[in-house]
Design a protein around this nucleic acid. Structure first.
Lengths: 233, 233
DNA sequence: TCCATGCTTCGGTTACGATCGAACTATGAA
DNA sequence: TTCATAGTTCGATCGTAACCGAAGCATGGA
């Protein structure tokens, strides 16, 4: 018989709509309870529980008990990266759950993608960083330039701390709404985190949307000017 | 309702064992007929036909008519890359179709991974290229150094021609058998192609194994010495 | 024209897995 | 102790999709 990785198992786990909804909800990077995930998936708690134990057996999600609650989260960054890859691929083939039109504009403008910023603002940020040579494409990936290090330092990010992670610093991630790339990796995570902690933006309660305050809009606009009216393909 | 890429659809397509087997067979990079794919999947021709039309609707495979035959292949390199990513992820979670032991030694030694060399020899090749600084890790990816350009030129590969492709030149790909990376991308493809055309190796008829000739072993060993007895994790 | 080959379509069967109600366990609060 | 909340396990139902036999198309050779 054949030998090799069991891709069918992973496919089956992701292939059920309820499980896919749960995983998508967990792409926000937050840990969610079984009840919350049941709501997100549109199934009862019993069904959700069954799905979650399958996802856990499959190594896609991890569980943390905390008093009466059980918090579930994506198992690790690799899981998030895999889901991002599949999302990008699905979008590239036109497999959208509904129409790709201008629906849910908040999500299209700015949203959380596992742990970094996606949507129009995410794309614009990466474009701007590339334009001012803070980041440079190199081989298949992206690298931070000295100018980029200076810029991030100015914003108060601790580069040395970021480098301790085993994840790549910069990584491009295909955006399903924009059909273009935005910035993932440790730096992408740190930037989003910076926006949130400095009060420039906050996360929407009930979706993956990221809502900028007026002040945040101003600051973001100054840091990452829309240097080109980017046509969304 | 939710908005976004339909990852469940991709998951379902990959999640059926018969379809997964077909896709794995197509990872050899060769175009195969419906009959061949039916054999690979262990189903009848009717069933295979049904699966193939689903895969085609989903944008995972493409079809080419040639007289009475219909050749199917992976739709594009992005599809191969996605499958590679899922294989790596599945292997990292221990999801193997059978035991990960020393079974099918030919496959573990050297095999085709979509269009480049994988297995022990693939890992060894990349290790060796990194060791002699022909390739350098940069950011998330790999880049060819001047030394690497010299080396490839010496082997008779046309770098200018390779650069015309939109795919990255060098790319690392996680190896399920070795749990380490091997070389993908345009350069990885060109190297495998070089081994095959120069008669150093040939493809096995009925599997993804790559069989080296005695002369090929010698040449490969000279070019890519096993500079370190690499422990397979 | 006839037949062989390669593949698709149709129809009916079957099996697996998603689903939920109900009962059960666990933790915390009153 | 009792009650409430959070979650799992069990059992039964139900729908979908995989599967294959048979028939139908298409292409090419004799």
């Amino acid at each position: 018989m054949k030998e090799g990785p069991d891709i069918a198992r992973i496919g089956t786990l992701i292939g059920d709509p309820a499980r896919a909804n749960m995983l998508t909800a967990l792409m926000s990077g937050q840990a969610l309870t079984a009840t919350e995930l049941a709501q997100a998936a549109g199934v009862t708690l019993q069904t959700a529980s069954s799905h979650l134990s399958k996802l856990q057996d499959g190594g896609l999600v991890s569980q943390r008990k905390q008093s009466r609650h059980r918090y579930f989260a994506l198992a690790d960054p690799a899981t998030g990266a895999l889901l991002e890859a599949i999302m990008g691929f699905a979008a590239s083939r036109g497999h959208l759950r509904h129409q790709p039109g201008p629906k849910d504009p908040a999500l299209r403008k700015a949203r959380v993608c596992y742990d970094h910023l996606a949507g129009d603002y995410g794309v614009r940020m990466l474009d701007s960083l590339l334009d001012r040579q803070a980041i440079r494409p190199e081989g298949d990936g992206l690298v931070l330039t000295p100018e980029g290090e200076r810029l991030l330092g100015e914003m108060g990010l601790h580069l040395a701390l970021l480098r301790t992670s085993r994840r790549p610093m910069c990584k491009s991630c295909l955006d399903w709404s924009e059909r273009r790339s935005h910035l993932a990796g440790t730096v992408g995570k740190a930037l989003l985190s910076h926006f949130l902690t400095s009060g420039w933006a906050r996360r929407s309660e009930d979706s993956r949307a990221v809502v900028f305050s007026p002040e945040g809009e101003r600051q973001f606009g100054a840091l990452f000017p829309a240097f080109r009216v980017s046509p969304a393909v």
